[in-house]
Amino acid sequence: MTEPTRLLDEHDEPHDESVGARLNWLRAAVLGANDGIVSTAGIVIGVAAATTERSTILTAGLAGLAAGAMSMAVGEYVSVSTQRDTEESLLAKERRELRDEPEAELEELAQMYADKGLSQELAQEVAVQLTAHDALGAHAETELGIDPNALTKPMQAAYASFVSFTVGALVPLLAVLVVGVGARVPVTVAAVVVALLGTGWLSARLGSSSVGPAVRRNIIGGVLAMAVTYAIGSLVGTQVS
């Protein structure tokens, strides 16, 4: 095996289920952080364009942080709970079928292995041995793509989203508060761009995709959001005053 092939096998195509689970919640965490950065930056930039009152900016930023973090957590919990319910329902159905029709299920499993390219004899032997070892695991993985020992975790997803959104939101919130009035907007924009560069790079690495497009999408989207809210804040602030 050549060195490039060995590296690809070891690093680019992890097959361990625990690795896949970690990558899933890491991607969710990166998404939460990215959302926290962009949405909170939009709020504080918009408010900063309308007023110079630090307390007003702080109140708006904290309100956006709290609402966004809770929304992300609840949304992830509901979404992943629905997925978990579906997984458990499918596993319950598979258990009933294994209990009531074990021969038919064995033949079905063997045929699936044969469809993947194994000979009928080898497919039958594999199906028999895996069924004897862990019937539900073998059938669930092959038929449903579900690992009964690694079901989705709603609370883990909710917690990861809440924490990551909060951490991301603190970047623009602190940036806009720690500098003087004249430097608030440019410093916040700079901090947000750097943060989005980081989350774009991390999301690309986790997804084994090209870093450049991911970073560009992140930064362009974030800058566009800040530009729109800044324009709205400037207009509203002018009209109110």
Rank of each mutant, 00 (worst) to 15 (best):
E107N: 08
L136H: 04
K153Q: 07
T152P: 06
N149Y: 07
A135E: 02
E103W: 02
P102T: 12
E103H: 06
A132F: 06
L122P: 01
E143G: 12
E105F: 04
P154C: 03
Q124N: 00
Q124G: 01
A123S: 05
A132L: 12
Q124T: 12
A132T: 14
R95T: 14
E97S: 13
Y159A: 10
H133R: 07
A140N: 13
Q111V: 13
E121S: 15
H139D: 00
V128W: 08
E107A: 13
L151A: 11
L136M: 11
V126M: 03
E125F: 07
M112P: 00
E125H: 09
D100E: 10
E107Q: 12
G145H: 05
L118P: 05
G145T: 14
Q124Y: 12
M155R: 10
L106R: 12
E97Q: 15
E125R: 12
E107W: 00
R96H: 14
A127K: 03
P148T: 13
L144F: 08
A140C: 13
A158I: 12
E103Y: 04
E103Q: 00
A104W: 07
L118H: 10
E141Q: 14
G117M: 05
R99K: 05
Y159P: 01
Y113R: 07
P148Q: 07
A135K: 03
H133T: 11
A132Y: 06
Q124M: 09
T131K: 07
A104L: 14
E107P: 03
T131D: 04
H139C: 00
V128P: 00
T142H: 13
G117Q: 04
L118W: 13
A140Q: 13
D147V: 01
P148F: 02
L98Q: 03
V126S: 01
G145W: 02
